[in-house]
Design a binder for these strands. Structure first.
Lengths: 209, 209
DNA sequence: TTCTTCATGTAATTAGTTACATGATTGA
DNA sequence: TCAATCATGTAACTAATTACATGAAGAA
């Protein structure tokens, strides 16, 4: 029954979680977005300047003004109530993975375009996988070398990192397969013969109970 | 330079792609969302009632009123200009996969909660994978049996379907692994030892050039 | 004949993005 | 000392969601 407009949502809790790790300015928080957090909960930077204010309004964090020359900046720090709220949130259920994939949408409608359009889309997807993989490997190497940030969080980060790596791998492997399949399509994809082998393989699978 | 507010976005093009397959009422379109399209471009149903109006405003589709008793309903049909616009869109680049994953976020912050919270999150993820897998297998069986909808699109659907299946598989396999790892954590996950083997395996990977 | 579910939308609200603005710092 | 980049936000706008409303059809 909190007053409207300042309700805590998942984005707010993501900020709260970051504050549980240490105190941050919002600018620093925004930069962290490019690394771990943004892979799981991508949001525009400008959002991140609003959410901590809600936390303060709820007593879950406190804001301190600091100065760089005459320019002010705001450092947020979690409160004990904030740690309690985070623990409570961690104990509640949540949403499964939600995927938004424009390039795959183009493949979904590839029968209304050209074969080379479809191949280009696959190539972009493959490139995406390659880039992500390079990032993941670089981060893992940092932890193995003992130079990764927040080494005390390495246990949790390894579990999440493994997911992100498996994910990028899977996308890359799919792209290789799709490239081979689509290369065999005729110029007009609407006339392509289905990859029956793939469908049969899926259909033949036993379901876990 | 089209007038503001009615610009075509990805959601609009997704609708246009559906109309390239056949004519639909918006209600039917919304139902289709639950199947293929919604897995790649999830949107709330109410959205789907707005987008086709843009298509009509741009001359890419036409709307026809039909009646069920005294109740009107709108059937949308693509125009030749619409097919051209779809082809043009298919030839442009697009975004790679964007993931939003609340449950994984909870694992990312698991060191501020309890071990059983983390195990519960993993269990939910595993359940998600199991459900998706059951759906995927059922759909593939339909196509193999020759009873799937839009059999003329089977070639494209097999390529996308394989991706969605690989995706659900990967999530399920990760959940099994994570469950085993986290079961070995102490009560307080902040004190857990990292899964070094996983990190080293990632770090050791050669990068594709 | 009444209840429930399916079908068909609209309106109000919220969440999120793009664009803008400006101070501090660094390097050429 | 000027330009470029980093740091720190705000404001305007757009996209998307939730909540609501109501007719038709089928089941009990």
């Amino acid at each position: 029954m909190s007053s409207r407009g300042d309700a805590l949502n998942t984005t707010t809790y993501a900020m709260l979680g970051m504050l549980a790790v240490r105190s941050w300015t919002t600018y620093e928080l925004a930069k962290q977005m490019d690394r771990g957090l943004g892979r799981l909960w991508p949001r525009a930077r400008s959002n991140l300047f609003n959410e901590p204010k809600k936390l303060v309004a709820h007593g879950l964090a406190v804001a301190a003004q600091e100065y760089t020359g005459r320019r002010a900046r705001t450092v947020y720090t979690i409160t004990p109530a904030g740690r309690g709220a985070l623990r409570a949130w961690l104990a509640t259920p949540g949403q499964g993975p939600v995927l938004e994939f424009e390039l795959m949408l183009k493949i979904f409608f590839a029968d209304h375009g050209s074969r080379s359009d479809a191949l280009a889309a696959v190539a972009h997807i493959r490139e995406w996988a390659r880039e992500r993989n390079a990032e993941n490997v670089a981060i893992a190497r940092g932890y193995v070398a003992g130079t990764g940030p927040f080494p005390e969080r390495a246990a949790v980060l390894a579990v999440v990192g493994r997911f992100l790596t498996d994910y990028a791998d899977m996308v890359g492997a799919w792209a290789d397969w799709a490239d081979a399949v689509i290369k065999d399509w005729p110029e007009d994809p609407a006339a392509a013969r289905p990859a029956w082998a793939a469908l049969e393989q899926i259909a033949a699978r036993r379901l876990a109970e």
